[in-house]
Every structure is written in structure tokens, then in C-alpha cells.
Nucleic acid binder design. Structure first.
Lengths: 222, 222, 222, 222
DNA sequence: AATGAATGAGCCTTCATTCAT
DNA sequence: GATGAATGAAGGCTCATTCAT
């Protein structure tokens, strides 16, 4: 029975849910995010969600149709939320390649830190999705990847790069390094207290710049 | 009751399993790896395993005591298998930093490609382990990390680095780039046919070298 | 995880069960009592119960949360039922020590005979509870013991006792004798037909009085 | 399959077990008694027994045929052991009714205290046998009851009883009281330390005599 | 005599989902 | 819109007993 859920259900989704008072809607969303973040798609329990949210099982399935739809709704919600936040950052980003990357990276780091449950849910979904939602997650991943990069790369100043450098590759190189660093820090954050995390942001920027310096020497005119 | 088993289960574990005819043992292991790789620890079903392997529920638990033990046995098995393979590579690795990194990366890539189920199981376990095995996985991760890096960094020739470069940071920079590239390719492999993958190995090395060239210019004497 | 349920399960317990049509509720209770009485807590099978009651496994656990809760609910149900029955007897009990003890003993005997399954379930639970419910049973046992004795001893007329008699010990002596007799008869009942049991009640009272006469001569003024 | 075990198996029982070196035989018996005493017939695990005794599953079933037979063998063993011990007491028992009862009661109490596992196993078996062994236990209970009483009542001096007393009833009255007291003390023992138990024996005898005094006044010539 | 691998029915419990109210 | 009672498949695991060696 779980198998023949296909595509149409997206239509009937959350008509009534959207009409809910903001407060109640937010509460349900937050509880769902927490459940999926902490337990992953498979282990997350719709029973637990309804219990914590103080709503009936019936209404949850009335809103979302089934667990998979609920999950995908949340993924979209979280992606939109995060994209919004990042977009604001985008406007104030310096043009300089390296600094732009660093500040964008820091922005992502802060976002992940400020909404750890959202981040965890999204991270798990992207890195290791349940078979039941794999394809849907894949689609979304590709879409967001394309979109977000657009904004970021538009207006980037690569004039400092040496003439013989393949700009595309150079950009990817920088991204590779900073993404790797970001993941490393994120792992470290999990064992740190809130204050410590905030205090370490400066050190992270500093360290990022050190790595960027090493790259600059290779990519830019001396 | 679950708590004080720890010692005992490690002892009684797979004594009898090890005495199984090689063929049968391998079949069970392969089926288990597939199940855990495809579904992850929590969703993997011991029932399904026994069904596919054509053995009784009783005997599976006679061999391994419980699901957690079975899983950890498989993790150890896979880690040993992969460490073995990589070790052979290690002996023939060039001393030059960049080439050494590249070839090691390629070796890992090939390994992941040749044993995709093993790789997936291990990857999932390390990236997002079930609560039930988190600690055990963490232990193993730290151990293998320390061990494998030892072999790799011993005998590495960093003489080409400029004097004013922090060697530790330079090495991490290289690792960051190549790990990132590796993950990117792995994701691409999933949508490719066997032949295509093998054919692309050369292109990957080439591309890796391009990135390394960009780094070299920053890290080494010209 | 099993530990912090305690509070919750008592709350969510049998809200829905209590709303069941009396007939269906009674049927489930009776089937459960029979199962627990005949097999004891450990061997009693929730599967068997659902099968006999014609309900799904799910709903049984929806009603009671888990086997332990179901059992304790039944224990409370039976204890309440029996306390109710005995309370009615209590009001009409003669004040005279000996006669009061005898008639109370007979009342208990009749109760045990009329509800043999309830009696057996309670008896087994008190005499040799499963480790899983020991503490809960112990609590209930102490509570009921204190309560029931209160009602019985209040209004007892011990004026016939000789002055040099320790009243407390005398009462215990009588209780010892009549409890012992009661247990003996109960064992005999198991091999008797319904009619025979009822017919023997008079003989039992007679025999009890004979024993009481022997005690009276020692405890009371001649 | 468990059902059609009937009567014949008693024949094939423990031929080879009896030929075992005394030490090994005793070890197996003790471990079995502990297992059955602590968990009861149903929950006792033959697996656990073989593990603790360091013997194979095969040999246990070779010795005893099945779990039920093993249990009944142990019951017989324990009953014989206890009857032996009590018999020695019997020879030195005073002839006087009351003192004879008291000392016999104390002897039983000491026995139960000295071999708590044997006592518990026997007690549970008699009070609440598993369906699987109910009939067999019943038989043994009746037999031991008849036998043991013979020795005890032979040579008892009831000459102090008043002429108008029914001797049979008087004896039963005494037995009722002392058995009841014994059970009460046994329950108390469970929460006491070894030393405390031994120290309390004198107080128990004293208390028993107090009750006997109350009876004497009614049963004997003043 | 002795081993212990092998069986498979049975255990309690959880789960997403449906539907009458 | 909203409820929550009801379903039953599936989960990990244990058990007494058998039998080839």
C-alpha cells in the first residue's frame, strides 16, 4: 500500500493546513522538524508527532496525506527558509572572490548553527535519504544547488585571477576547500556549547583566510 | 539486561559462524552487507536477511547474538577488507606529496566503486549512525582514521613546499580538495554504468592533477 | 526507555477502553483474567488474548500500552471487585470475635469460589509475582491488607477475652487458624463440583466453629 | 510436540546421569535448582543451565529427555533431600504434643533457611505449578504429605489432652497455627541477613510457645 | 558419551494509515 | 474540519528440542 503513492498526492496537500492560525502551524512544523531531525525519516514517528503537537492522527493525515508528503513539505519549508536567509546575505557580499566565498561560508555556518534541527534534517536527507524519498530529495537537491549558485556567482569579481587560470576550476577549488572546512567545523560544533561556537567564529574566519592565502598565491597575480 | 551483555557477546560471537564453509559464510555476509547498505541499520531487517540467506532466524542470532553485534561484525569485516586493499596500494605510493595524494584518492575511489555496497554501508554508518551503534562506530572511526593516516603520511616527501608554508595546513588543504573531488565523483558514479566509470578514471586523475597544479603554484617554490 | 513511561502510561491507559460498550469490555476483561489466571503473568500471551477476544493486537496495546499495564489494570479491577463484595459482608458482620472471623472467612471462601479465575489470578500474583510486576504487586498488597483489616477490626468485640490474654496475639491466633482452614478448603474445592461446594459450606462453618470452640476455652472466661 | 510427552519417558531418565562423577552431578543439580528456584519452571532456561554448568545442550537432554523431566527429577531430589534431613530430626523429637510440633516446625524453618533455593523451588512448585507439570506435582505433594505425617504422628503423646477433645482436630489445630506462623517468619526472613535469621530463632520458639500456651489452656486439663 | 549448530513457532510491541463519527 | 479507535504486518529476539558428527 505504501508503494503506490506516486505523484498526484502533491495536489491535495495542505490546503487546510495553510489556513491554520500561524501559531499552531508553526508549532506543528517545529515539532515535525525536531522529530525528523533527531530520528531520521524512517524512525520518525507520526504518532509521536501528533502526541507532542496535541493534534489527532486523523488531522495530520488530512493535512499531509501521508508521512512521505509531510516530510517533503518540511524539506521544502526548510529549504525555502534557508534560501531566504542566505539571500539576504547575498546582497551584502563583497565582490572579491575569496572574501565572498569566506563570508558566504560563514553565513552558511551561522545558519546551520542557528537552526541546528533544520540543518540536521536537511543534511541527513541529502546525505543519506530513505529509499522512500530518495528520488524526491535528489530532485530538490539539484534544483537548490543550481539556484543558489546563480545568485552567488553573479557579480563575483574574478579579475584578480591570473590570465592562464581556468576560472570555473578555480572557483570550484575554492568551494571545495571552504565546504570541506565548513563540514569539519560543523562536526566540531556538535561537541561545543553555544557560547564557544559563537566565540570560535572569528578564529574560523581567520583560518579560512589562511587557506585562502595559500590558494591566492597559486591563482592570482603576485 | 541489555547493558551487561557487552563482554559476553563479543566472546560468544561468530565462533560457530567462522567455522562455516567459506561459501556459505560469504553468502550470509554479502546478503547482510547488501541489506544494511541499502536500508541502513534501523530499517535493515534480520527477518529479510534470514529469508534471503535461506537460514533460520535462530541460527542468525546464534551466530551474532543480536542485530547490533551482527552489524558491528560486518563493519569490522568491511573495514578490515578495505584496509587490506588500501595497504597494498600504500606500498607503491610515490613519495611526492601531490602525486601521493592523487593516487591514494584514486585507490579509494576504485575501492568504493568496486565494492559499492561495502562502501555505502560504511559511509552511512560513519556519516549518520543509528543511536544504537553510535558509540561503537565512533570508536572504530577514530581508530581507523589514526591508523590509516599514519601509513599514508609516513614517507611523504614535502621538500618541495616553500619554507614559509605551514606543512600541516598545506597537507590538509590538499586533502580537503581531493576528498571533496572524490565525493563529487562518487555521486556521479551512481548514475553511470560500470564501463563508463572505469573509462572515466583517467579523466579524473587528469582533473585531479589540474587542481593540484593550481595548488602547487601556491605551495611550492616556482 | 521503559523507565520514563511510568507516568504517561497510567494517564493514557484505558481512556478509550472505558468507553467501550459494557458487553465488549467485559468480554475482554474476562478473557484476560482467564489467560492470566491459568498461565500466570509470564506465560500469558497477549496474542492469545487478542485471538480469543476477536480484537486486533494493535487495539489491545492502544487500550493498555503494554502487557504489564494490562495486567496491573486487571489486578486493580479484580481487587476492587472483591473489595466491593467483601465490604457488603462487613456491614452485617456480628461483633463477637469468633463469629465475626468465621463469617468473614466464609465470605472470602464464597468469593474465591464464585470467581475462581479472579481468585487464582490474584493469588498467584500475590504469592509469586513475576519480576516484571513484583514492586507494583507488593504496593497493592500492602495497601489492600491495611485497608481491609481496618474495616474488619473496627467494631470487633473482644470483651469475652480473659483479662490476662494479649488481645493482639489472640486475634492473630484466630486468624491463623481460619486462614489455614480456608486454604485447605479452597484446595479441596478444586476437585469438587459446583453443587458439592455449595452444600459443603454449612459443614465448613460447623467445622470452623468446632475449632473456635477449642480456642474459646483457652482465650475466654469460662 | 511438547504436548505428547506422557509417561514413558520416566524410564529412559538419567541412566547415564547417575554414573557421572559425584562432583559434576552435584554441580549440575545445584545450577538447575538455582535456575528453577529463581525463575520458576516456565521462565527457567535450559540454555542458561547448560551455559552455567558448562555442559552441552545435547547432553542435558540426553540425561533428562526434556525440561519437564529434568524439573521433576529435581523435585524428587529435593524432596528426598529434605525428607532425609527431617527424618533425623524426627528421632530426637520430644513426645509432648506441643513441644513436638514446635521443634518440628523449627526444624522445617531451619531447613528452609539453610537451603533457600531448594525451598523456593519446592514452594513455588507446590503453590503454583506450571500447567505442564501440575499433575505430577500434585501426585508428589499428596504422597509426601501422607508419608511425612506418619513418622511425625507416630509416638506422639496426646495424653495431656482433655478427654472430651477430638484428638485429630486438636492436632490439626496446632498444625494450622504453627504452619501459619512458619510461613509468616519465612516471609520475614527474606528481608533479613543470615545472622539476624539465626539470632531470631530463639524469639520464634518463644513466640510459638506463647501461642501454644493459649491453645493448651483450651485443649488440656488445667 | 558428548557436542553445539540448526530449527521455527512464538513472544511483546510499534507503525502508518483508514474511517465512522 | 477534526477525532482517535482500529488494523495487522513487521520488528528483534528466545526457546526447548533434534541430530549429524
Amino acid at each position: 500500500m505504501r508503494e503506490h503513492i506516486k505523484k498526484e498526492e502533491n495536489l491535495s496537500l495542505n490546503k487546510s493546513f495553510k489556513n491554520l492560525p500561524e501559531e499552531k502551524r508553526k508549532k506543528i512544523i517545529d515539532i515535525c522538524i525536531e522529530e525528523f531531525a533527531k530520528k531520521g525519516y524512517d524512525k520518525a514517528s507520526t504518532n509521536e508527532i501528533t502526541r507532542k503537537a496535541g493534534i489527532s492522527k486523523g488531522i495530520l493525515f488530512h493535512y499531509f496525506g501521508n508521512k512521505r508528503n509531510l516530510f517533503l513539505y518540511l524539506i521544502d519549508y526548510v529549504m525555502e527558509y534557508m534560501a531566504d536567509k542566505l539571500e539576504k546575505t547575498l546582497d551584502n557580499l563583497p565582490a572579491d572572490v575569496f572574501e565572498r566565498f569566506i563570508q558566504y561560508g560563514i553565513a552558511k555556518l551561522k545558519l546551520a548553527y542557528n537552526e541546528p534541527l533544520m540543518y540536521e534534517m536537511l543534511f541527513n536527507a541529502f546525505i543519506n535519504p530513505s529509499e522512500e524519498v530518495r528520488k524526491d530529495i535528489q530532485e530538490r537537491y539539484e534544483k537548490i544547488f543550481a539556484e543558489s549558485l546563480g545568485g552567488f556567482y553573479r557579480g563575483i569579481d574574478t579579475s584578480k585571477f591570473r590570465k592562464d587560470i581556468d576560472i570555473q576550476k578555480a572557483l570550484e577549488l575554492i568551494a571545495l576547500v571552504l565546504d570541506g572546512l565548513g563540514n569539519k567545523y560543523l562536526k566540531i560544533f556538535k561537541n561545543m556549547k553555544a557560547e564557544e561556537v559563537l566565540q570560535s567564529m572569528d578564529r574560523i574566519m581567520e583560518e579560512s583566510r589562511e587557506y585562502m592565502e595559500m590558494l591566492k598565491r597559486g591563482l592570482c597575480n603576485s
